[in-house]
Design a protein around this nucleic acid. Structure first.
Length: 557
RNA sequence: UGGGGUGUCGCCAAGCGGUUAAGGCACAGGACUUUGACUCCUGCAUGCGAAGGUUCGAAUCCUUCCACCCCAGCCA
């Protein structure tokens, strides 16, 4: 498909300028996740941005694990992250780890100490916080700020040797305790952490902080444009300070864009982790999670997510994107590519009174009206079928043009049927419906040319396969998760009906042959994908996204 | 009250002193329809946070004001 020309976003403009003005020879970007959780759709925005930039400007994009805090990071996360980036369809120029640079970082820390720009502070974390000052008042110097270079060198080396306990000492950059920017008030650059690192094991017991490490990571990799989210804007002066105060060879620059927020969705790793560990969801890949792996299990395609990221754009204003746009991007693709099939989720038996008792008809059904190459399949019909319970109304409301007393409807691909009567059980519940068939309407066309407005999906009771269908909806009921009432927790807004399991759906026989993740459009319902654990005997399908439904909307008015 | 950002339709987002202020989503009408889907038409900011000013001309420049977001981790 042809890409429509699109105006450049502000980062692309900067890069185009930098190339034109000869500031850079070629572009290098990076996607730098901390391996402390699974990637979510917000990361997808950053991934599409960074890798997309590299593609567009013929540059390179690295995948780099920012693993400077062993207390939070795990190998499970690095595996899921590499997997998700690949699944989204991107290839990194090189796969890097901040921990690969620990030796170099240590040397630069020594260099800062030697030039009098870093010192070991014995203050407690509390004291450091106290002395940092406030937003409106300056901080006060640490009593250890003026230690000699020799003493600092000695102390820092002993910190690295494990001679002190966690919290006893830190290494700080000597910048400006009265800066208006709190990040410049002598930031901590190394802390003691007696933890095993998922890659360096027990080699280190001092670990660098983000502000110190990140620019150096970029510098080492020759990153030209280091792109991060808005909340790091105040860190840019720190980023620049560290790079310019040490003998690096390359100077990268940081640019910030607005992170993605989605309606009805929580996006913070902390909250997602909490949903997982408190078993509110089945795991990071629960189909209701906004994680890449959750979307994958839900049946989303990588291209629909990429498309979404393109549609939302890249800018600097805080935004809250409606999930409907994501749904649109998905449907747009699935409509073109999904094989259609029929599934009855809430079955109501219909007996065709005048259908010859043992007669079974076999009908041709197109697989996808949007795709001439998709071919067709044969479906069978006999005397008894199931239709959707909601497709019949004994007392139809205004505008209802499905089945009701006196009315005719068409069975998709098959025959026109007309209401005869209903049979209720002792509770007054409709047990089954009786209809008559127009045997001359095979294929669905009336021989006399009369118009039939309603068309229903159906399955034959004899060959239909009983199936489990998981219907999913938004995990949360609050449109803007930043609009929580005082004293409430995001968990107070969980949607009780975010997962509804339907155990007695009936599906067309062909669907029972579906393998894990095979996608279909269930006619008049939505797009579904086969569950990873589906079997021929016990098929399971997950709702990916429903079809638009203007009738439902009409009724809710 | 300090610093850093942002304000263009319900939601994103183009716009870069001269355009009738793009486009997408959503929404509302209508056409088509063997999916109340899809598709196709049509409508949807005399207005760009507000007020002043500069200019022949301002969403774009200036001034003041207002609103919202971020920052006081030995997290990233």
């Amino acid at each position: 498909m042809l890409e429509e020309p699109r105006s450049l976003n502000f980062i692309e403009e900067i890069i185009a300028d930098d190339i034109e003005n000869g500031k850079i020879d070629s572009l290098i970007t990076r996607f730098p996740p901390e391996p402390n959780g699974y990637l979510h759709i917000g990361h997808a925005k950053s991934i599409c941005l960074n890798f997309g930039l590299a593609e567009r400007f013929n540059g390179k994009c690295n995948l780099r694990f920012d693993d400077t805090n062993p207390a939070k990071e795990e190998t499970e996360y690095v595996e899921s992250i590499t997997n998700d980036v690949k699944w989204l369809g991107f290839e990194w120029a090189s796969l890097n780890y901040a921990s690969d640079y620990f030796d170099q970082f240590f040397k630069w820390a020594i260099e800062l100490i030697e030039s009098g720009k870093a010192y070991v502070d014995d203050q407690s974390a509390d004291d450091i916080r106290q002395n940092r000052g406030t937003l409106t008042s300056p901080g006060t110097d640490s009593p250890y700020r003026h230690r000699s270079i020799e003493e600092n060198l000695d102390l820092f080396k002993r910190m690295a040797n494990g001679e002190f306990e966690e919290g006893e000492k830190v290494l700080r950059a000597k910048i400006d305790m009265s800066s208006n920017n709190l990040n410049m008030r002598d930031p901590v650059i190394y802390r003691i952490l007696k933890r095993e690192h998922h890659r360096t094991g027990n080699k280190w017991c001092v670990y660098p902080m983000y502000d110190f490490a990140h620019g150096y990571e970029d510098s080492i990799e020759g990153v030209t444009h280091s792109i991060c989210t808005l909340e790091f804007q105040d860190h840019r002066p720190v980023y620049d300070w560290f790079i310019s105060n040490v003998s690096t060879v390359h100077t990268p620059h940081q640019y910030e864009f607005a992170r993605l927020n989605l309606t009805y969705t929580v996006m913070s790793k902390r909250k997602l982790l909490e949903l997982v560990s408190s078993n509110i969801v089945s795991g990071w890949d629960d189909p209701r999670m906004p994680t890449i792996s959750g979307f994958r299990r839900r049946g989303y395609t990588p291209s629909s997510i990429r498309r979404f990221c393109k549609e939302i754009g890249v800018a600097k204003s805080d935004s809250l994107v409606e999930v409907e746009l994501l749904h649109h991007c998905l449907r747009e693709e699935l409509n073109r590519t999904s094989q259609r099939a029929m599934a009855v989720i809430d079955p109501l038996k219909v007996v065709l009174d005048n259908w010859p008792d043992d007669f079974v008809d076999e009908i041709e059904a197109e697989n996808n009206p949007e795709d001439a190459n998709a071919g067709s399949r044969k479906i069978k019909i006999g005397k008894e079928i199931y239709i959707e319970r909601t497709d019949f109304m004994e007392e139809p409301v205004k505008g209802f043009f499905r089945l009701s007393p006196g009315k005719e409807v068409r069975l998709k691909h098959a025959y026109i049927i007309k209401y005869a009567n209903i049979i209720k059980d002792e509770n007054g519940e409709i047990k089954e419906l009786h209809c008559t068939v127009d045997m001359d309407s095979r294929g669905g066309n009336a021989p006399d040319g009369r118009k039939i407005k309603g068309t229903l999906h159906w399955v034959w009771t004899v060959d239909a396969v009983k199936s489990t269908i998981n219907l999913y909806d938004n995990l949360f009921l609050l449109r803007n998760m930043n609009d929580m009432e005082d004293g409430k927790d995001y968990k107070d807004y969980l949607n009780e009906k975010s997962k509804v399991v339907v155990g007695n759906a009936y599906i067309e026989p062909i669907l029972s042959k579906a393998g894990p993740f095979d996608r279909f459009q269930f006619l008049r319902h939505g797009y579904f994908c086969a569950d990873p654990n589906t079997t021929m005997e016990a098929p399971v399908f997950n709702l990916t996204v429903s079809l638009k439904d203007s009738w439902k909307k009409e009724q809710n008015k």
